[in-house]
Design a protein around this nucleic acid. Structure first.
Length: 512
DNA sequence: TTCCGACAGTGGGGTCGCAAT
DNA sequence: ATTGCGACCCCACTATCGGAA
């Protein structure tokens, strides 16, 4: 199959808003793909590369190359060239990669170049990714969409399911079962603004400590343990403590879901930055493990002794977990029967925060494990802080925000009467607000840059954030975590904005 | 008819490790 | 030694479509 066909379909998919039409377009193309094209065409039209990481980004794609006159590239040839590209390493590799990219781009037409650029940078912007590709695959093969989705969750990848489905038909889906040693997409949580709201929605539920660490899925098959991240990367070698812990448990075959986190000598959780740095260290693991030991803490069991627990209610899965995993290696929890228990659950949340954790996750006791979905049966509740900050600058947006000032630079007042930048945010704005702030900030602009404008520090904006963290990038030595806009405060003057001093006083554990 | 779940898009900060300067 | 970049951890929020209620 020619690449130009994919580029055309991708453009057509991008041009339609109707999901049903996007799915139909994808299905039509999948049907036309030759068997050898399938493992490439499917991920390409899901907006991804089958190679995953390539080591090539915006910079390597930098200079534009004159496009070819006519389409000659086949999908398989492109894939072969990109595989070669991904395998280049060692000194001089950057120049070599740039040369290979230029050669590939030179063989592509203008339309193909745009498509390739989107694929490599992960910004296809066609309004269809894995989920719609899975729907298209179902339509192309006549398999029930729900069965395809489930197979994708269990396989952890669309490609494997696509290949089996297109080669053997819908019957192949039965082969995708929960298997020890093969990771499944983890269940995710929605947000709720309070414990009362969460308990009100879910009824009988468990309220569990939310640890600020790295999500892990731990598989043990006899003496073999494997540890996977949320995106199913294998990080076993970086976490010897987790392997030891899993081997110390009574069961010999199981799949557990949990979090890995570093505690200090007093048993309080270390900052997310410290845990993430440890888990990210892969060269000298022994030294890193000595400096920052981590502990696994589990909250769910997906499989025990070859019994697939995914469809069981959470209450039953947790009973299995409790049989297998002793108390300190399980997440702390409290049970609520209904709204009458809200005060007790609020007390549990307060205790959790006092112990230094992020918040709680409220989980319906009767819900199955919805692998890969942000099921409504898990609701996280975290305290939200707010600040009144001053807009110092704004950056031009991309994609659907092109032409609008989008990303705000936020400043707090300093002792000398100036402002210290604390970070940026682009979150929380409606389209109307985006339009308004673009006008307003243009009026306040004192300098135009390629990336945006700096403005007179006059506009006060109320910002919500999850916490403060240390920073080497910003002048106050701290930055906001997950900052988002709540509303503009035109009733406030910049002299009334919050100061760095009060911010630090509100987070003594970070300011220390 | 209205409501709401699922998706895609738009980016944020940090850390590690590699290659280039 | 330092800097720039890519990959991958954590993530919030809005707009939209289309099925459920």
């Amino acid at each position: 199959m020619l690449l130009t066909r994919l580029a055309d379909v991708s453009r057509e998919v991008a041009a339609t808003a109707a999901r049903s039409r996007k799915i139909a377009l994808l299905a039509e193309l999948f049907r036309d793909a030759e068997p050898d094209d399938v493992p490439i065409v499917i991920p390409y039209l899901a907006g991804r590369l089958p190679q995953g990481r390539l080591g090539v980004g915006w910079k390597a794609l930098g200079q534009s190359v004159p496009p070819a006159d006519g389409p000659t590239l086949t999908v398989r040839e492109v894939d072969a060239r990109l595989t070669e590209l991904g395998e280049v390493s060692g000194p001089g590799s950057q120049a070599e990669r740039a040369r290979l990219v230029a050669a590939l781009m030179g063989a592509a037409t203008a339309g193909e170049q745009r498509f390739l650029l989107g694929l490599i940078t992960g910004e296809v912007r066609q309004g269809a990714l894995d989920a719609l590709a899975a729907e298209g695959l179902a339509q192309a093969t006549g398999a029930p969409p729900a069965d395809v989705r489930r197979a994708v969750m269990l396989a952890g990848s669309l490609q494997a399911v696509a290949q089996a489905l297109l080669a053997q038909g819908p019957a192949a889906l039965d082969r995708f079962r929960l298997t020890v040693g093969r990771p499944v997409l983890p269940m995710l949580a929605h947000s709720a603004s309070s414990v009362a709201e969460a308990v009100g929605k879910l009824g009988a539920c468990a309220v569990e400590e939310k640890l600020d660490g790295i999500r892990v899925q731990v598989h043990r098959d006899g003496d073999v343990v494997r540890v996977y991240t949320r995106t199913l990367d294998d990080i076993t070698d970086r976490l010897p403590e987790v392997t030891r812990a899993a081997l110390g448990l009574a069961g010999r075959r199981f799949v557990l879901d949990g979090e890995v986190i570093a505690f200090d000598d007093t048993g309080r959780p270390r900052s997310f930055q410290e845990t993430a740095g440890r888990v990210g260290s892969r060269v000298d693991v022994a030294t890193a493990a000595e400096a920052v030991p981590v502990s696994p803490v589990f909250f769910d069991a997906l499989s025990v002794d070859d019994r697939d627990l995914l469809d069981l209610p959470f209450a039953e899965r947790h009973a299995e977990l409790a049989r297998l995993v002793p108390e300190p290696m399980r997440v702390r929890r409290a049970l609520a029967a209904g709204p009458d228990d809200v005060p007790a659950m609020e007390g549990f949340l307060a205790g959790t925060l006092a112990r230094g954790h992020e918040g709680v996750v409220v989980k319906a006791l009767d819900a199955p494990y919805s692998a890969g979905r942000r099921g409504a049966s898990w609701l996280k509740v975290k305290p939200v802080h707010t600040l009144d900050l001053v807009v110092l600058a704004a950056e031009w947006g991309h994609g659907r925000r092109t032409g609008k000032l989008s990303n705000l630079h936020l400043g707090a007042r300093t002792a000398d009467g100036g402002f210290a930048m604390l970070g940026k945010t682009f979150k929380g704005m409606t389209d109307a607000l985006l339009l308004w702030q673009t006008e307003r900030l243009r009026d306040l602009a004192v300098e135009e840059h390629g990336w945006g404008v700096t403005v007179r520090p006059e506009l006060v904006v109320e910002i919500a954030y999850d916490g403060l963290q240390r920073s080497t990038r910003y002048p106050a030595g701290v930055t906001l975590r997950f900052a988002r806009v709540l509303r503009y405060r035109e009733d406030k003057r910049p002299e009334e904005a919050d100061t760095v001093e009060t911010l630090l006083a509100a987070h003594p554990e970070v300011a220390r």
